[in-house]
Structure formats: C-alpha cells, structure tokens
Design a protein around this nucleic acid. Sequence first.
DNA 1: GGAGTTTCTAACTAAATGTTTCAAAATACT
DNA 2: AGTATTTTGAAACATTTAGTTAGAAACTCC
Lengths: 216, 216
Amino acid sequence: MFQNTVKPCGRPRSFDEGRALEMATQVFWLKGYDGATIDDLVAGMGVGRPSLYAIFGNKQTLFLRVLQAYTEKKGARVTQALLSPQTLRDSLASFLRSAVESATEEGSAQGCLALCVAPLVNDVKVQEILQNAMAGVTALVEHRFRDGVSTGEIPPDFPVAVRASQLIDFVRGLTMRALLGIPRKTLLKDAEEAVDLVLLPRGGNAAPKGMFNERC
Amino acid sequence: MFQNTVKPCGRPRSFDEGRALEMATQVFWLKGYDGATIDDLVAGMGVGRPSLYAIFGNKQTLFLRVLQAYTEKKGARVTQALLSPQTLRDSLASFLRSAVESATEEGSAQGCLALCVAPLVNDVKVQEILQNAMAGVTALVEHRFRDGVSTGEIPPDFPVAVRASQLIDFVRGLTMRALLGIPRKTLLKDAEEAVDLVLLPRGGNAAPKGMFNERC
DNA sequence: GGAGTTTCTAACTAAATGTTTCAAAATACT
DNA sequence: AGTATTTTGAAACATTTAGTTAGAAACTCC
C-alpha cells in the first residue's frame, strides 16, 4: 500500500496550473460565468478539454477555484497597499488607488470578477468566498484605523467600524462604475476625495482643527 | 393611404404588455441575462413564444426594454423620495432608505437588475441606458443639494457635485451588499450613517456648529 | 527497449438554447 | 355568414453547449 506512493511519471503537462487559473480568471471576468464557454476557457487557458475536467472538475468548480484565487490575490494586494509603513492618509489613498487601478486595468477585464457571479449568486460556496473576502478587507481597514487611533493620526472617538464599512461600500461603487466604462482618471479623483470624506474630523469633534489634515 | 389607418381587429392579446415586461424584469433579475432562458421568460411572462418574438424582437431587445423600463421606474421612485417637500436630511435619508428597501425586497430579486448585465456590459445600448440612469440620479441629488444650499440647510461652500457623486457610489456599494445577502436591517443602519457622513459640516467650515444638524 | 503512467488531440454525445414555421383560433368589419 | 387581420399553441429548426471517450503521444523507471 505504501510502496504505491511513488512519484507520478507519465507525460508532463504542457501548461502551468497556476497560470491556467489566471487565464481562466480573465476569461470568466471578460465574458461572465455563463458567457464563458468551455471552448473559450480551453482556448484561453491553453489546456486541453480533458485536462480541464481532470484537473478542475467542471465549469462550476473551476470558477470556484478562480474566485478563491482571485480574492486571495486581491486580499494580498490590499494588505500590501494598506499596511505598508506610511501615514494613515497615505495608506487609505494607496488602498483606494490600488482598487481603482485594478478595476480599470488596460488589456484586462474591467470592474471586478465578483460582478460576474449573478448566475451563481445563490451558490452557498460563492457567497461564502465573497462574504469572507469582504469581511477580510473591512477588518483590515478597521485594523488600520485602530492603528491610526493609537498613533494619534485620528482622534480616539473615531468611529472605526462605521468608517471602514463606509469606505468599502464606496470602493464597491467605484468598481461598478469602472465596469460601466467610467475612465480611470475620474475614478482616481473621486477616490482621493473619498479619503478626505472618511478621514477628516467632524465639526463636533473635540480634536483641534488642522491637526489631522493640512487641508482642514 | 390614410383610409388604411383603421384600428386593427384580429385576435385579442391574452396578456398585458406592461405586466409582461414587469414579469420579465423579475426573471432576468433573478436568473441573470444568460441564466434566463426563453422558456423561463415565456413561463414567467405568461406569453407564448411567438408572441414574445413578435412583440419584443428577441432576447436582447427584450432585455433592453426591460432595462429601460426598470431604470425609468427607479428614476421615478428616486425623484419622489428625493424631491418630496421635506428637509434635506430627510430627503437623503428617504432616498437611501428607498434604495435599500428596493434592493432587499422580499419575494423579489435582490440587489439591482443592473448587476445582471455582465454578459452585455459591452453593448453600447446597455451602457447608454445605465450611464443615463446614473447621471440622472446624480443630477437629481445635486439638484437637491443646491436647493439645500439656497434654503440654508447646508453651507454655501458645500461641495455639491463631489458629495452627490459620493452618495451615489455609496448606494452602489449598499446594493452590491444586498445582492450578497446582507440583511436589510444592516444596510438601513449603514444608510443612515451615510447621511451623516455626507451631510455634516466639516471641522474647517465657517458655518456655526449645530446649525445644520442637531447631533453635531 | 519495454512496462507503466499520465497527458494530449480529436471526435463524439446528449441535452439545451434562441429562433422560426404553420395551422388553428379569436376578433372586427362588410 | 364571410373575409381580413392578428394572436396563439405546438412542434420543429439549426446551433451551441457542457461533458465524455478512444486512442495516440510523451515521459520515467526498470
């Protein structure tokens, strides 16, 4: 039984699994879940049909893997943009900029892969992946806000959870606009303004004016 | 030539065109554009297949009519919520509440019909309809803000265009969350907080504290 | 070189899809 | 009643789809 666990030899694969997943991402993203046919995927991924089914199961499980990998990659990108050692304002600006840039990438699909899931929106696994991703990013922003409180970049009574949630909702809005073809420049400008909106202290705050932002 | 413009007689229709469009809306919304088959539409709309093609052209043109009617209906709803004679704060709250409620309607599809368009996102007509709708709503919010300025509800230097755009982006975010099954209660709470975020005067404003909002 | 294993190319299947055809049915006008 | 006009229902059409199968090809280890 154990002697059977020899390394597989056989004919070597003519493609890289990770690379194939990335290409599949583009195909799904560009054409939507239903719109992407197996032919499209086979052509785009550079794998044979039987290999696709042997390795990724079927169309739906392939999409799940794509979605999972996609959210992980985005998560990593967000983490990097948000947690690099810089001021809170720069962190948020960098986060929003990164989101807009990824949603308006030239030569790639626009918007967000998650906007293609409509046909699968009732799939439990899909909901789980997306809700997890959303919660993760929100938690990350919250975390960064709490850091900002402890470093004094924002006042102690800053409503961390509320602002984090609002910022994420705002990003979702930007992303949808990207899908509809609104140019990157416009979205970048709006993103910058959003940082101010979320970050600037309110009129009723006890914090002294001008402490948190030069424009204030 | 003119005597030929007699009223058509023929066999009467067994369905109401407007009602059929509404049902088609639900089908597309629930299943997505690709996911909704002609069988689904025929069953949901209560029309025969040939009638569907005779009256609505084909699937794509049917969807365009559905989308057009949908945006017009939403537009009317927004107008009503936003322009009823009430304070600016109440107008915005009512607008956001209406958006959340419509996106979380029980017994109806969740989110927004526009989130089903992925397969048609490159269709010029679809982009036109959606961009028009978006621009219309934004313009309406701007208009209400300008009213608020002239009635003194918000200070003269209130960045009308920026705030309007930000509010709409925020609504888009709420809508996407509705699609993913976030409960209405949560979204309503967030919507209320968004009104504060957008409306409250900033720390650096010349306006006296407490003038525009009792909570401030 | 041959046995064993894995992947590749290419053709195939069965089901589902959007769309059309055609005769029957239902109305209005003469 | 008869004719013209329009809608309806059932069936059929051509195409496309997701998924499978069969055998040739490429590799490792003996």
